[in-house]
Amino acid sequence: MSRTLFIADLHLCNEEPAITAGFLHFLQGEARSCDALYILGDLFEAWIGDDDPNPLHQQIAAALRALPVPTFFIHGNRDFLLGQRFARACGMTLLPEEQVLELYGQRVLIMHGDTLCTDDEGYQRFRAKVHQRWLQRLFLALPLRMRMRIAARMRNGSKQANQHKSVSIMDVNQQAVEETMTRHKLRILIHGHTHRPAIHHFPLHGENAQRAVLGAWHENGSMIQLDASGVSLIEFPF
């Protein structure tokens, strides 16, 4: 059966070996029987540069490189600094933050999803700052140890800030969803980021539209399958 798979929000790190093991099992099994694999951001919990010698990164790169299907990557809010050097090591192609695919007679928009959370104005201001090219170049020029300390402080600050935000403010804004889908002239959107797996159906300009949301890999794996019959959200054990 021809199908394409999408995953996101694995947040791989040394502190969560079960998730790493689950992902490696997925790459050795399920992922080998698809037309292509799309990773929609936050593959890693943090990314401070392609020169980070973390053995976990080398292990993941080798596993992705061994995958016999095309692999594509859209940056998340945790690994937006992942660059061409690591992508080449993985054998995967970097995509822009919004990518339209034409698969099995359907037009589909894929993205990480954080840009749709427009109610979280504080996060959007922070995102605009850290996506400035000059600031990214400056950060990547710093010594590795300094980058590690800065990244740790930023993660702690993010966790503390999120504790004081309402659940709704960290979800997508429906108007932003509809405006984005209208701009691309399509009816299917696949994204991650919010960790709220579901397939939402809603009317859009008189037609039925779908927003498929990937789950985070906490205790189970999560993937979206797209084939000729449409979109399916699938959870599976590690």
Rank of each mutant, 00 (worst) to 15 (best):
S232T: 11
L40P: 01
R3H: 09
D50L: 12
A209T: 10
D79C: 12
Y104I: 09
G221N: 15
L37C: 02
A36L: 12
G76I: 10
E16K: 15
P203H: 14
A151L: 01
S222V: 04
A66E: 04
V108H: 04
G122A: 12
L95T: 09
F126H: 01
S33M: 04
K185W: 13
N156K: 15
I39G: 06
I190T: 09
L43G: 07
F6Q: 11
A152F: 02
A152K: 06
N173A: 05
N208H: 03
C117E: 05
E45L: 12
L37S: 01
A128C: 09
H195G: 14
A87E: 06
S229D: 15
M111Y: 01
L43C: 07
A161M: 15
A21K: 01
T182K: 13
R145L: 12
V130A: 05
R187L: 15
L37W: 02
S229L: 07
S33H: 00
G157T: 01
P55K: 07
L233H: 09
G206R: 11
I199Q: 08
A63L: 06
F202K: 10
E179W: 14
Q99I: 03
V69E: 02
Q163F: 00
N208E: 13
A141I: 03
A198W: 00
A66V: 11
Q175N: 05
D171V: 14
H164A: 15
T4L: 03
D51V: 05
A198K: 02
C13P: 13
I150H: 12
L12T: 00
H164I: 04
D114V: 12
D119M: 00
M111F: 00
D9N: 12
M92R: 05
E30P: 13
R187G: 11
L94F: 03
W134F: 11
M154K: 13
K165C: 03
A8Q: 06
E15K: 09
G192T: 04
T93H: 10
R127W: 06
L43D: 05
M154L: 12
W217H: 11
G41N: 06
A198H: 00
L116A: 01
L12E: 00
R187N: 15
L64Q: 15
L82A: 00
